[in-house]
């Protein structure tokens, strides 16, 4: 187990390095002249040269990548700027925004809590409803409630987030006016109190959770039906165990194992930003930061968010693997 963990951790580090390199070269290599993006309309030969010197754009790409990684890996961070205008960029240094000069890490850490609330709240919703509905459907296979659940799930999967989000927004905010228009100030639980906070997040949660809940319903149902056809379920019945024990102890344990994996990866993916939901409900999370940076050609910010999100996905992967090893003895002991 210990060796497995170490091997897995090493793999993770390698994958992260590879991703950082790919990301860096993709984004840094692509724009023809980043300096032009920074100085904008006032560009002339002199200012371009100055910007190039400040940001090190004259250096070979590999050197630029080394500098970038130094900011992420060295505990002291790195310095930005040419002689005379040097400034400290403490660890973890993702560089500075081209648009407003703010350290990218500051923007990320400001935006992260909103995304965290959004993703975890939605995760609770979809996990609860998805698994419950899927389980009921599987146990009543072919009955009305099963067909209903399957239908709802299919509907949910087919509801594009942009359509469903605006539908909720229109219904509950515009038409019924049960909930006020989203105000970013209400994203902070501890300053505005739970009522406003809930009002702010409830529709985004439902919006984000719908597709996942639908997917989890189908997944749980399919897994449970497969599991209940397994030989060991027949063995459990042949022992004279009650149906409750058969379903919950023998069936559910196996059926939910793959869901743990998928849940970890889904949540990990969302922690990097739920772009569309954040855009619809004006939540200033990582997703909104990402899209604003993309639209503003703000390369350091884009790079920062993408890398930050990739870290979550990769870490989620390893967490899930370790968790899986604890759940499934066949993995744990081999």
């Amino acid at each position: 187990m210990g060796r497995y963990l170490i091997r897995r951790l090493l793999q993770t580090v390698v994958i992260l390095l590879v991703i950082s390199a790919i990301t860096f070269f993709l984004f840094w290599a692509t724009p023809a002249n980043p300096a032009l993006l920074i100085c904008g309309k006032d560009c002339n030969t002199e200012t371009v040269a100055q910007v190039n010197a400040t940001y090190g754009f004259d250096d070979p790409l590999i050197v630029q990548y080394g500098t970038y990684m130094q900011g992420l890996l060295s505990p002291g961070g790195r310095t930005i700027g040419s002689e005379g205008s040097e400034r400290e960029c403490p660890w973890p240094c993702f560089g500075e925004s081209y648009q407003n000069g703010i350290p990218v890490w500051d923007s990320i850490s400001d935006a992260f809590p909103a995304t965290l609330w959004l993703a975890t709240g939605a995760a609770v919703l979809w996990l609860f409803f998805g698994v419950m509905l899927g389980l009921i459907a599987a146990l009543r296979k072919g009955k009305l409630i099963d067909k209903l659940s399957v239908g709802i799930a299919l509907f949910g999967v087919s509801f594009p987030t942009i359509v469903f989000g605006y539908l909720l927004l229109f219904l509950f905010i515009v038409k019924l006016q049960w909930i006020p228009f989203p105000d970013t100030a209400n994203a902070a639980l501890f300053t505005v109190g739970p009522v406003k906070w809930l009002q702010f997040y409830i529709l985004p949660w439902i919006t984000l959770a719908l597709v996942f809940a639908a997917l989890y319903t189908r997944l749980t149902r399919a897994n449970m039906i497969d599991t209940m056809n397994e030989d060991y379920i027949r063995t459990a019945r042949a022992k004279g165990l009650s149906e409750r024990t058969v379903v919950f102890k023998h069936g559910l344990r196996s059926a939910l194992t793959p869901i743990v994996t998928i849940f970890g990866l889904d949540l990990g993916g969302l922690l990097g930003g739920a772009v569309i939901t954040e855009q619809i409900f004006s939540i200033t999370g990582l997703g909104k930061l990402a899209i604003d940076s993309v639209l503003g050609n703000d390369l350091p910010a884009i790079m920062g968010v993408v890398l930050f999100a990739a870290i979550f996905v990769v870490v989620a992967n390893i967490v899930v693997d370790v968790l899986y090893a604890f759940i499934d003895p066949r993995v744990r002991l081999s």
């Binding site: 790919i22 023809a32 993916g269 930003g273 993309v294 968010v305 999100a309 996905v313 992967n317």
Partner: peptide, 26 residues
């Protein structure tokens, strides 16, 4: 495949599309 699956793909697609379109022009 592992690496491709570890990419936050929507973010990547979102960030890369304008960059590539831009590059095509250049």
């Amino acid at each position: 495949m592992d690496i491709m699956l570890s990419f936050p793909s929507l973010l990547f697609v979102m960030a890369l599309t304008p960059v590539i379109a831009d590059r095509g022009q250049d």
